[in-house]
Design a protein around this nucleic acid. Structure first.
Length: 336
DNA sequence: CATACGTGGTT
DNA sequence: TAACCAAGTAT
């Protein structure tokens, strides 16, 4: 339990800091339309602000309302998400738009119970939407808040543990101010993102440095503690880029990473003799493993030589398709 | 509870 | 170069 006076001090100081040092000109801060806030929150999950901005601008320009999104094809939604990563976010975004269109008559839900059941909206995203759009007193617990709170309270247990996570949620909820909840939610994220940073936090100009346990004990370099996940074995695959009549064959991937995106076939199904025009080897690094792949550019004269369940696309269509970032980059290279 | 799920930037 | 990090959620 945190004493009510300490609570007020904490939120007051974060709010006061935000007045002078907060971020005010991000593209999703122009209004409190829950649809737009939702899009930004999903895009920002595990993704840096600078990466999100151009994707957000293009996305909301194409899908201006929940109806635009609900009526779009999954393929087009994936194309707009192409390069942003964590593609289940895009698939869930599309699912949720349809659910809101049908079950909520296009009106964005404003209760925790309704929000939390929507695909892709978890506790923190629900809290962000409720506080930003409806000024309801709900907490968030993103990476920024975890770092700020674990340092301020000197929490030296790993933040990966369920117990610690629960503790942090508890603190985050207790610290909420009675007023200006929407500003406070933005303020504590800005605070974590720009002052209480992972590396080299600016403790000298921190408004709560007098009572920060990590600062007091010189532990800002070690808090928050994280369990490191064990490194996984590399994986390998091959991509066969078949060209015929200035078109290339792609198949819709339905498993694992890149689920929902287009990929070149990963096995060679040509029975006749063929010529490899270009080939090479690359790798891409994921959160949990490294993928090494060989690629082969093979030109054929008859599409019927390939019995593959895919579609043929013009080279110039590649940049507008839902392809993984490294594969799109490879293909654009090969088209030159 | 641990793991799957991307990508690009920084150290 | 490898490791770490970024507005988490689903299973």
């Amino acid at each position: 339990m945190i004493a009510s006076q300490s609570k007020k001090k904490f939120s007051d100081k974060i709010l006061e800091w935000h007045r002078h040092h907060g971020r005010y000109d991000l593209p999703w801060q122009k209004n409190k339309d829950p649809y737009l806030v939702w899009i930004s929150e999903i895009m920002l999950q595990q993704t840096q602000v600078g990466t999100v901005i151009p994707f957000y601008i293009k996305f909301i320009d194409r899908f201006r309302t929940i109806v635009d999104l609900a009526e779009a094809s999954e393929d087009e939604v994936m194309a707009y998400w192409s390069g942003l990563g964590f593609y289940s976010r895009a698939r869930n975004l599309h699912k949720t738009a349809k659910i809101i269109a049908v079950q909520f008559s296009c009106k964005f839900p404003d209760s925790y119970e309704n929000l939390i059941q929507l695909p892709g909206i978890g506790k923190s995203t629900a809290g962000a939407i409720l506080s930003f759009c409806y000024k309801k007193k709900f907490a968030i617990l993103d990476g920024n808040v975890k770092r700020v709170l674990s340092r301020f309270f000197g929490i030296q247990e790993s933040i990966n543990l369920t117990k610690t996570e629960k503790h942090l949620w508890d603190i985050s909820e207790q610290l909420l101010p009675d007023n200006d909840i929407d500003i406070y939610t933005q303020a504590i994220m800005d605070f974590g993102a720009t002052l209480c940073t992972p590396k080299k936090p600016q403790c000298d100009s921190c408004p709560i440095n007098q009572t920060c346990i990590a600062k007091k004990n010189n532990l800002t370099g070690t808090i928050p503690l994280k369990n490191k996940t064990k490194t996984q074995a590399d994986r390998s695959t091959e991509f066969y880029i078949y060209e015929c009549n200035k078109q290339i064959l792609l198949v819709k991937n339905r498993t694992g990473v890149w689920n929902g995106l287009w990929l070149p076939p990963q096995q060679n199904s040509l029975s006749k003799k063929y010529i490899i025009h270009k080939q090479g080897e690359r790798q891409c690094v994921f959160s949990h493993y490294r993928l090494k792949y060989k690629y082969f550019l093979i030109k054929i004269t008859n599409k019927k030589d390939l019995m593959v369940d895919g579609l043929w696309f013009d080279w110039k269509e590649i940049s507008d398709l839902g392809l993984p970032a490294p594969i799109k980059s490879l293909m654009i290279n090969l088209s030159n």
